[in-house]
Simulated assay, not measured.
Amino acid sequence: MASEDSPSPNEIDDPVYRQGMIELLGVLAYGEITACERLAEDAKMAPDLKTRAEIMAMEAAEFDHFAQLRDRLVELGEDPYEIMATFTDTFDRFHKQTAPADWLEGLVKAYVGDGLAADFYREIAAYLDAETRALVLETLSGTGHSEFVIDAVRGAIEDDPKVGGRLALWGRRLMGEALSQAQMVVAERDALSAVLVGGVDHPGMDLAGIGRMFTRLTEGHAARMEKLGLAA
């Protein structure tokens, strides 16, 4: 993933690039706000107060990321809520298909599902202007609670090894749904797709490059599953 071909400052005014950038900021912002809602629900299923507090801390970090993206859209003269509203159907489909059955599935979804999405958007960020790329990478930097999730999942598997098989299947399902969502987001957005494949008069990804990107996404998923003690 190289960023040397990212748009120069004078290209930022290109209407296709600008629209693609706004769409990316919008989908990220909506993803963060829905993550807050999801984690709030997950916290209610937590087995104890300490776990609930950890999940709520993750929720607070997600909201901070949302606020940064929202504020950037305002700076660009856009209504962030109008932009985000256009992604409602896509995210609703994903979350309906991946509703966790318990707090452990919620943690795996937060760690694995969000990690897959973050990897995908980092790939797109390579083709953004420097300022927007820095903001996107900052909001994809994680919530700082990965060790808590890893320890919680591994601890649950130690207590009941059967949990491992169920969560491994859950992780594979999340991967399939997340990749499907990523493809759908790009396919449904001409400007966002143009940024990824080079629609701003600079080289983007060809078909081979897109194939390599999805290989990297799969490898990243496998690494996260291994950290959780789950077979990918």
Results as ranks from 00 to 15, higher is better:
Phe66Gln: 00
Glu41Lys: 12
Gly26His: 05
Glu23Arg: 04
Leu25Tyr: 02
Phe94His: 15
Cys36Thr: 13
Phe66His: 02
Gly115Thr: 03
Thr139Cys: 03
His95Asn: 13
Leu69Pro: 04
Arg18Gly: 06
Gly155Ile: 10
Glu23His: 08
Glu131Ile: 10
Gly77Trp: 07
Tyr17Ser: 04
Ile22Lys: 03
Glu62Leu: 05
Leu28Ala: 07
Asp129Val: 07
Ala67Cys: 10
Thr90Tyr: 13
Asp114Gly: 15
Ala57Phe: 03
Arg122Phe: 04
Phe148Ser: 03
Glu32Tyr: 01
Glu131Lys: 13
Gly20Tyr: 00
Thr98Lys: 09
Ala125Asp: 00
Ile124Phe: 01
Trp103Glu: 14
Val108Ile: 09
Asp89Thr: 14
Met58Asn: 00
Glu37Asn: 13
Asp14Val: 06
Glu147Pro: 06
Ile83Arg: 13
Gln68His: 12
Val74Phe: 07
Leu69Ile: 04
Ala35Ile: 05
Met45Phe: 09
Asp14Arg: 05
Gly155Thr: 08
Thr132Trp: 00
Leu135Met: 01
Tyr81Pro: 06
Val27Met: 05
Asp151Lys: 12
Thr34Ser: 14
Asp48Lys: 10
Pro80Phe: 02
Phe120Lys: 00
Phe66Ser: 02
Thr90His: 15
Gly113Val: 08
Ile83Gln: 11
Leu137Tyr: 00
Ala43Arg: 07
Asp92Arg: 14
Leu69Thr: 02
Asp42Ser: 12
Ala46Asp: 07
Leu76Asn: 09
Phe91Glu: 13
Ser146Gln: 10
Gly155Cys: 06
Phe87Val: 07
Thr143Leu: 08
Asp102Arg: 08
Ala60Arg: 10
Ala152Thr: 12
Arg93Leu: 11
Leu39Tyr: 03
Gly106Arg: 01
Gln97Ile: 09
Val108Lys: 05
Gly26Val: 11
Leu116Gln: 05
Asp48Leu: 08
Phe66Leu: 04
Thr88Phe: 09
Ala130Met: 13
Glu54Thr: 05
Glu23Met: 05
Ala125Lys: 00
Leu128Asn: 05
Val108Thr: 11
Asp129Tyr: 07
Ala53Lys: 12
Ala29Val: 02
Leu137Asp: 00
Leu73Asn: 06
Asp92Pro: 09
Glu59Gly: 07
Thr86Ser: 15
Phe63Pro: 03
Gly31Gln: 00
Lys44Phe: 10
Tyr121Ala: 06
Phe66Ile: 08
Thr98Gly: 07
Phe66Ala: 05
Glu147Trp: 06
Met84Asn: 09
Val74Leu: 15
Glu75Leu: 15
Glu23Trp: 08
Phe94Cys: 11
Glu131Val: 15
Pro47Val: 10
Gly26Ser: 10
Phe87Cys: 11
Asp48Gln: 11
Leu128Asp: 03
Leu137Arg: 01
Ala61His: 06
Arg52Glu: 12
Tyr81Leu: 12
Thr139Lys: 00
Gly26Lys: 01
Gly77Cys: 12
Asp102Lys: 10
Ile83Asp: 05
Val112Asn: 04
His65Gln: 02
Gly115Gln: 01
Gly113Phe: 04
His95Thr: 14
Asp129Lys: 07
Gly155Asn: 05
His95Arg: 13
Ile33Met: 10
